[in-house]
Nucleic acid binder design. Structure first.
Lengths: 201, 201, 201, 201
DNA sequence: TATTAATCGAGACGGTACGTCCGGTCTTCCA
DNA sequence: TGGAAGACCGGACGTACCGTCTCGATTAATA
């Protein structure tokens, strides 16, 4: 993700004055990440983050305007991991993508973090927007790409509602989690097969 | 929902001492409900609830050990509403059920409340349990009943995974909401048709 | 001291209805006394008193209109002990009286209780009045009697200000205590001698 | 008096971090003082103090760990006033000193405050200690100085117990107050004369 | 080299809510 | 009527945490 005031972080375009210590950036995000994994967003305290990162609160707030933004940045920084490589086969690529998606939420407090963003929705609307932009959208796009490729190959029904298919794929996880059911090992496979059954050519 | 210590509330089985004023119970829940609808869980204050219910905070805390528990009780008390009647036709019954489900979450702060419960998951695990028991389970059961009826009528594929079908139906809402897409008027219809397409006989 | 509503406690003059259980009276006062000795007036709680006396708060409040009144009654009940007998010698009688006075305040929380009454002075003025009536006045009268007897025997200066002498005798304890000095064994003797030195004939 | 952790307040010896606003210190003490004069310690509320001082409760609690400590500090800050100047004459200097002492306690809630400190004695022992140090000791020392000067001038009996004389002087006030007698205008004079009568050379 | 402007550590401060405690009253039932 | 049990009001207490602000010390680019 990125800093607060500055533009895109990669383009340093230095002004005068002492530059920010890059090590501090990492220490803050790591501390936030660790605390959220341990205790969740609600129990995490800015003072705790500051102490663990060996930094003062002011230093944090110079980078992120609020606790929730820090949390979001921390998560985003963590989620920048390599997506699964494509084999070319629609079904197995989708399954791999869904496994990836599931692992992103399976770690401790994964859904709790999502809940926090939702809870904060009305207080900080742009937060949900960033959440969508950095976390939701990339994954959905990856799935969409696979579905459209399959559509172009005529593997799917020409009138298939791809957006709806996406929702069913991704949403199955949420519903399953909320219902409290345990996740079977072949969960991704079953979901993908079920959805494909409804839209295949 | 119900009182704190006692069992099921319907069975009053009076002990000694002054009984709790039933009017107070309602006033508290109504106040909480109203405030949450207006401002959401986060902005709602226990003092506000107390003031609006014309009650002291101690009286609230005698019933609910924390703010979040009060919120849950309030929601549960609200959601005891009549489910749609069945026509006998699987497709239209499912659509009606999905419309009902959607309306339950469409009201202001509906998803925000769900988010709150998720956010609190690790701090208060039994909260999510009650949420499932009182809010999630009843709706899923209603859907399950329809699906099983259809299965018995041989309208569905004999090996259809009904639980997965449920997840796709319900989960579509969550995914759609999270993606930030606007909900079309015929949303329920499209979802039901898509799912049925995958499992019909 | 006595009960609240009724007249003088010895005169029972029964009205209709169930008579008060006399054992309860003692249990309440004993409980209050014990708790005050342990933790002092401030830390003593009406619920604690009720629990220790195996009685409900209502039962206590039927007897004493407030916590402070209960405390006062408890102390008064305790202080009904035999005063020292007179030998006829002014000096030794005064010393005995002062020893008695000192012992009344020396027990744990003795001065703390006095402090409580003073602290409550403006909130409950009549409390200090009762305190004077039941605890202060009797002791001062005893001293006064001795001084007047000595005056009549011409042992004292005819113009001696006896009230002031009383104040110096009794007040020495308060001042000594407030100063934080330890009390020597012959404290009473020294005080009496010093005062008598100023007013003897 | 002074801050909480630091030593003597006169020696500022700045540590790191933002220094405490001195104006806040005064505003808090003034507010406490004013409220105590109006309503006494018991009726004074921390929220009231905070509101009147235009400060938050946390700011108060950062300086004083409890309500009672705040009260004590407030009083101590008030009592730093010029003592009466000496004329050189023992009797008139003592009288002036006693008048001063009396005026310190005569103001509304003066004795009530003393009572509060005594009442809290066992709960917060160091409170009484500070009370002695800041309020009791200075006055007693002033008296003691006068007595010793008189002793050195051979105005007093060489074996006179000066400490006891102090106790009689100061204690007379307490005893008089507790007895509920009204204070005559020449009270100080009479007390000083009576005590001096017992110890003069 | 001196100046300038930003960073960082440390901690005070405002604001706001939370959950607890306690004194005192009232209501219900039982004896 | 007395007493047990406990709900309820009113009000205060002390704590927690977020986000801002004010100091002082430091560090790099610039003039």
């Amino acid at each position: 993700m990125g800093a607060s005031t500055d533009s895109d972080a990669t383009e340093t375009e230095r002004g005068p004055g002492r530059p920010r210590e890059p090590a501090v950036d990492r220490r803050i995000l790591d501390a936030a990440l660790r605390l959220m994994a341990q205790s969740g967003y609600v129990r995490m305290t800015m003072d705790q983050v500051a102490a663990l990162a060996d930094v003062t609160k002011a230093t944090i707030y110079r980078r992120y305007p609020s606790k929730i933004q820090l949390a979001l940045a921390a998560i985003a920084s963590y989620c920048d991991q390599a997506p699964p490589v494509y084999t070319g086969d629609t079904r197995s690529d989708l399954i791999a993508q869904m496994e990836n998606f599931r692992h992103g939420l399976d770690r401790p407090h994964g859904m709790a973090m999502l809940g926090t963003v939702l809870a904060e929705e009305h207080a900080t609307p742009e937060l949900l927007a960033r959440f969508r932009e950095y976390l939701v959208a990339p994954r959905r796009t990856a799935i969409r790409v696979l579905l459209e490729r399959a559509c172009n190959r005529a593997e799917l029904h020409p009138n298939a509602d791809l957006e709806l298919a996406e929702n069913m794929l991704v949403g199955s996880y949420y519903a399953h989690y909320l219902a409290g059911y345990p996740f079977p090992a072949d969960w991704a496979t079953r979901v993908v097969d079920a959805v494909l059954a409804g839209i295949k050519a």
